[in-house]
Nucleic acid binder design. Structure first.
Lengths: 145, 145
DNA sequence: AGAAATTAGTTGCAATTGCAACAGAATTGT
DNA sequence: ACAATTCTGTTGCAATTGCAACTAATTTCT
């Protein structure tokens, strides 16, 4: 349709928005959104982390973290405990309810990657795509951390 | 920090959100948002296209298109004319005001790609990243077009 | 020790986005 | 020709996100 290059933003936006739509659909049975899923997946690997570190790890605003964590708590997927070292901070833990669906939603997240985004990619290309996105995200994260 | 692979969603989300923040900052002097920019950039290459085609080209919901176009119109960057072939449809055109900043904002869009997202990428890697994102966007776009 | 600055988290606000429902026009089928 | 269906675009709504302002706790500086 066009010969000139589109800016990357066009592709990134499409990938992001449709990934969200896909994940949101899959997560509807769990009363969970794609955004909340990201936080829960981090907790599975780093249980007890503070909200500040969740924000840093996902390069996301602390107020967004606060809101997502609140919803996850209301739905019984996580609990918060005031940190013993710092009374301002919360340690966030996933609950038994979350543990129960852990593998199910982990698979769901990676299945979306492989079945949709990386469809038609060879194993080598998948690896390359993964590495490039990781580097680009690191670059992006340096803008207004 | 962790040995297990993160799902791609983590990186995509970071890239998308920070790209938006960067573009929104740069576009503030023009009273324009990153979302609106995408539409204007398409119009520069395909002047007179309908809203439906804008939506299809950007894989974006038609209501989102309607709202972005409305704002661009209010700010004097585009005009709408009812299509002669189809009274339901609008042909969308960029204005002289938009033409005046055309090169400036085009450069801005690509500068963000190169100076931030692709920092540290060789020319070959940039090309590869571009192609992979394009393929991934095509894959993503097939989900709920 | 006490003042000043920084940090962790929350809340209110505005902007963006997608979905659902809708209106009017165009197309298809009988 | 008319009815049923499909399409183009708009509007109302809810969810997500980031920014700014704020509170309370901690750290730093003198």
């Amino acid at each position: 349709m066009n010969q000139k290059k589109d800016p990357l933003g066009k592709y990134i936006s499409t990938i992001y928005r449709h990934s969200m739509m896909y994940a949101n659909d899959c997560l509807k049975p769990f009363n969970m959104s794609a955004g909340q899923l990201s936080f829960l997946l981090v907790l599975f690997e780093h249980n007890g982390i503070t909200q500040e570190w969740l924000s840093k790890y996902l390069s996301i605003d602390k107020s967004t973290t606060a809101k997502a964590i609140k919803l996850l708590e209301q739905n019984g997927y996580i609990t918060k405990k005031i940190s013993k070292q710092d009374k301002r901070a919360y340690n966030v833990y996933f609950t038994d309810k979350a543990a129960l669906i852990r593998e199910q939603i982990r698979k769901l997240a990676f299945k979306g990657d492989n079945d949709i985004l990386l469809k038609g990619f060879s194993d080598k290309e998948k690896e390359a795509a993964y590495d490039m996105l990781k580097r680009m995200a690191q670059n992006a994260g340096t803008y207004k951390v």
